[in-house]
Design a binder for these strands. Structure first.
Lengths: 216, 216
DNA sequence: GTCTATAAAGTGATAGAC
DNA sequence: GTCTATCACTTTATAGAC
């Protein structure tokens, strides 16, 4: 590796690292490239050199968060289906757990990581995600409903899609707003572990998905 | 009413009306006071005269959306409890329906209204809402769990709070992201009426809230 | 690849005339 | 209450030297 390449990688890496931290804590809009480059210890112009624009940097960060999660979701579902016909709880585990596991491959603290993940899924709006992320999302929102319908044949695909929609909402809300709720509720929600929260989300969403079908 | 008061009210009203429309469509951050005042047909300085600052205008709009909903939530629960012990579905109806009904007392289109409501609950983060809104939220998040525990005595209050947290997440997600999903899913979610969506949310969340309790 | 310097445009807020 | 003019500052992006 030449010096130039090494410098390139370290500057690029420093930008990505600072971007993750600052975007997670403050949101994409509120972080200026001046503050970000200062925090990263690189020059202001480096953002445009390495990522083309602020938007390019945002997309790089979003992809680095969302894509591994969705790839893991597909892999886990494939694994589960190889072992038989997974139940609703198992399918939900395949869907939800990758979010928790990605936290370990991140340099961010747990709280910041979850906020970042929530922001990626929320602030950008699904429609204007990077193309690679949209493609993965489409695979996920195609395969999971099929898996669910296999063991919930009483539900129309349409209603499964809606119930997965509600499930995603519960997940994102927990990721983004649980810290705030902890403060506002003055401790009334207790202090469950991440695994404990996952258990509660799974039992709630599993029951919701298996609710009696509605007339559509 | 004097001319001055009339002029005051109409300028203030025009600002609020434009703020609702623009904030709903573009978010609080992205709307500049220059664009907003131009849209409202008033002078740039009017924002600071009538609301003190951009932040003051935002808070006025947020209050005007959130507070009526939470007041209605409290009223509906009071009414339901006057007629006996409401079930989970009834309690959820008291909680969710006020969001839909407020749409009719708004000048906004249905889509914009729902986005605005979602933004009020989401973008600001619960912690930094106006004081009156926080007080109402605290009443709601005190009374509803009590009502739920009355008919779900097998659940600890702590778990009820978490399940209400998930419910709010599903609601907000539907408000903000359903239009986007409609596009991305290429019509696969069908075209249910607002009342139809409410029915689906209620049955999902009702089943989720009544799921078997977890070890905490 | 990295830097400085700067362009070009935007922001919220306010003093002061009317 | 409403207006103009302007302040003081921030933003992203880029040209050009090194």
């Amino acid at each position: 590796m030449t010096n130039a390449e090494s410098a390139d990688l370290s500057a690029k890496h420093a930008l990505l690292e600072a971007a993750q931290r600052l975007f997670a804590a403050n949101g994409f809009e509120k972080v200026s490239m001046r503050v970000l480059t200062q925090e990263a210890g690189v020059n202001l112009a480096a953002v445009n050199y390495h990522f083309g624009s602020k938007e390019g940097l945002i997309e790089a960060v979003v992809e680095s968060y969302i894509n591994p999660v969705n790839e893991l979701r597909l892999q886990r579902l494939t694994d589960a289906e190889a072992e038989g016909t997974p139940g609703v709880e198992t399918i939900l585990d395949c869907f939800l757990r990758p979010v928790l596991e990605s936290v370990r491959s991140s340099a961010l603290s747990e709280k910041l990581f979850f906020q970042m993940m929530g922001r990626c899924m929320n602030d950008r709006g699904l429609g204007n995600l990077p193309a690679t992320s949209i493609a993965l999302f489409e695979k996920v929102t195609t395969r999971y409903p099929v898996a669910l319908q296999r063991i919930c044949p009483q539900l129309k695909l349409e209603e499964i899609l809606w119930r997965l929609h509600f499930t995603v909402g519960a997940l994102i809300h927990v990721l983004i707003h649980t810290e705030g709720l902890r403060i506002v509720s003055r401790g009334k929600i207790g202090n469950p572990s991440v695994e404990g929260i996952l258990t509660m989300v799974k039992s709630y969403c599993s029951a919701g998905i298996q609710a009696p079908p509605n007339e559509l």
